[in-house]
């Protein structure tokens, strides 16, 4: 029972942190919020017995990325307080509807009596460690992901190149 309640608390905290990240007016606070959200996610991953994923999550998403964001934000100019507050109120007003929507959807889903038997027919589960799985069995996927990263980096470079000329 306590296991379940801890999980519920963690998930609720995750959602609230994510909401705060998106709703807050200042970008600096958003970057910090990103770090906090990722940290909570890492804790959940630890609890789900995937230490490797949790370590990656913590180091990259809660560490490296927020650092890059914060240092970039530090290079930009500050925005005025009043317009910031106005923007904050604006955002709150817009997203108030979201809460209502979430409650409605949740209600609908509950009343739909969806099956909740999440037992999956498991295929052949590899017994090796995740590293072996990633490097030997699924290296196609790994190379694919690297390819995606490379494409993304290439695209950003081109955008940046353009802005230099412009």
């Amino acid at each position: 029972m306590t296991e379940n309640s801890i999980n519920i608390v963690l998930v609720a905290a995750l959602v609230l942190a994510a909401l705060w990240t998106v709703m807050t007016a200042r970008t600096l606070r958003s970057a910090i919020g990103l770090a906090i959200t990722s940290a909570i996610l890492a804790i959940i991953m630890f609890r789900l017995a995937s230490p490797l994923a949790a370590v990656f999550e913590l180091s990259v998403c809660a560490g490296l990325i927020p650092v890059i964001f914060i240092s970039t934000i530090g290079l930009t100019a500050r925005v005025e307080e009043e317009s910031m507050a106005a923007k904050q109120r604006e955002k709150l007003r817009k997203y108030a509807a979201l809460l209502v929507l979430v409650l409605v959807v949740a209600g609908v889903l509950v009343t739909m009596h969806l099956p909740n038997d999440f037992a999956a027919p498991q295929g052949p589960v590899p017994t090796e460690s995740p590293q072996v799985v990633m490097w030997d069995l699924r290296h196609v996927d790994l190379i694919g992901q690297i390819g995606v990263l490379a494409a993304g980096a290439f695209g950003v470079v081109i955008l940046v190149k353009v802005s230099k000329r412009a």
Partner: peptide, 25 residues
């Protein structure tokens, strides 16, 4: 012929599309 590579290549195409759209800034 496999699903993950399909996803990978779709993502590559999408990434290039993002930048193509935003090209003129």
């Amino acid at each position: 012929t496999d699903l993950f590579s399909l996803y990978v290549f779709i993502e590559v195409t999408s990434i290039s599309s993002f930048v193509l759209i935003a090209f003129t800034l």
